[in-house]
C-alpha cells in the first residue's frame, strides 16, 4: 500500500470526497453519463477558487442534472422545475456576500425556466449558471428539448426533430450576460477554469457544458458514450472570442467552444444600491 494511504490510516479519501455527500453515493447518473464529470469540474473550480466554502450556495432545478445540489456538501437547494434561477436570485439579493452557482439541465434552464434565464441575464444578477446540455430531457425518458438539434431522434420526435434548437451562448449574450463560455465535458480543464473565472467575476455568468446522455439521447441517435466523446474531440473547434452568431449546435457542422463574452458592467445589486440606498 502506498504511503499516502497508510498515512490516512487506511481511510480512503478521494481529493473531492470532502465536497461530496458520500452518504448519498452512488449518485443516480447512468454509466457513461457526463453529468458527474461536469459536477466534479464544478467542485474542483469552487474548491480552487479560494472562495470561503461557507459562502458558496449551489442551486439546482429538476432533472438528472438537477440532482447535483443534493450531492454536494456545500449549502445547496434543490428547487422546483425551472425555478433554480429565481431561487438563486433571491438568495443572492437577500445576502449579497454569498457566491451563488446554479447547476442544472438544458430543459430546466431553457424550456420551463427560459424566461427566468433571460431576465436574470438582462438584470445582470451576480450569479453563475452552469448548464449541462445533453440535448434532451434525460430524466423523463428522452423527450425533445429546446436544445435538441434539428433532425435528431427523441421519444417525441421519432422521425427526426423538425425544430431548430437554441444557440445558448447567443441567447445569453443577447439577453445581457457579462460572461459566456461553452465547453464539453471532455474539455475538463477549460471547463473548470471557466467556472472558476465566472465564480469570482461579478455579474451574470453563463457556462454551457455539452455532455452525453447515452441512455436516452445517445441510444436513439446511435451514439455510444465513447462515440460522443470522440465527436467532442474531433468535431469541435476552440475559438475564444468567436461571434455568438456562429455558435449554433448542428450535427452537420463543427461545434465551436471557448469563452465568447467577458465584460464588466454594473450588477443589479450595485444599481439598486445606487438608486435606493445612495451614500449620504
Amino acid at each position: 500500500m502506498a504511503d499516502h494511504l497508510k498515512k490516512a490510516g487506511n481511510k480512503q479519501v478521494h481529493p473531492l470526497d470532502d465536497m461530496v455527500r458520500r452518504d448519498r453515493m452512488p449518485h443516480i447518473w447512468c454509466p457513461g453519463c457526463g453529468i458527474g464529470t461536469v459536477f466534479s469540474a464544478c467542485l474542483t473550480a469552487i474548491k480552487s477558487s479560494g472562495i470561503d466554502l461557507d459562502k458558496v450556495v449551489m442551486v439546482s432545478g429538476i432533472g438528472c442534472s438537477g440532482r447535483a445540489a443534493g450531492y454536494t456538501n456545500l449549502d445547496s437547494f434543490h428547487t422546483t422545475h425551472g425555478r433554480a434561477i429565481p431561487f438563486a436570485t433571491g438568495v443572492k439579493l437577500a445576502n449579497p456576500e454569498l457566491k451563488v452557482i446554479v447547476f442544472s439541465g438544458d430543459g430546466d434552464l431553457f424550456a420551463i425556466g427560459g424566461n427566468h434565464f433571460i431576465h436574470a441575464a438582462r438584470r445582470n444578477i451576480d450569479i453563475t449558471v452552469v448548464c449541462v446540455n445533453n440535448l434532451n430531457y434525460g430524466m423523463t425518458g428522452g423527450q425533445a428539448a429546446a436544445t435538441t438539434p434539428e433532425g435528431s431522434l427523441t421519444t417525441t420526435t421519432p422521425l427526426g426533430n423538425p425544430e431548430r434548437p437554441f444557440n445558448l451562448p447567443l441567447l445569453a449574450y443577447a439577453a445581457g450576460a457579462a460572461y459566456v463560455a461553452r465547453w464539453t465535458m471532455l474539455h475538463i480543464q477549460d471547463l473548470t477554469e471557466s467556472i472558476k473565472e465566472a465564480m469570482v467575476k461579478p455579474g451574470f455568468a453563463f457556462i454551457e457544458a455539452l455532455s452525453p446522455c447515452p441512455v436516452n439521447y445517445g441510444r436513439r441517435n446511435k451514439e455510444k458514450p465513447l462515440d460522443t466523446l470522440t465527436m467532442y474531440r474531433d468535431k469541435t473547434i476552440i475559438k475564444n472570442g468567436a461571434s455568438p452568431l456562429e455558435l449554433d449546435v448542428d450535427s452537420r457542422k463543427s461545434i465551436i467552444l471557448g469563452k465568447f463574452v467577458d465584460i464588466q458592467k454594473p450588477t443589479f445589486f450595485e444599481l439598486y444600491e445606487k438608486i435606493y440606498r445612495p451614500a449620504e
Binding site: T37, S40, A41
Partner: peptide
C-alpha cells in the same frame, strides 16, 4: 490526473510519486 478529472464517479485519482 486526466483519469481523475474525467471520472464521473470519484472512483480514481492519482498522486505524484516521490
Amino acid at each position: 490526473r486526466f483519469c481523475e478529472i474525467i471520472c464521473p464517479e470519484f472512483a480514481i485519482y492519482s498522486t505524484e510519486a516521490s
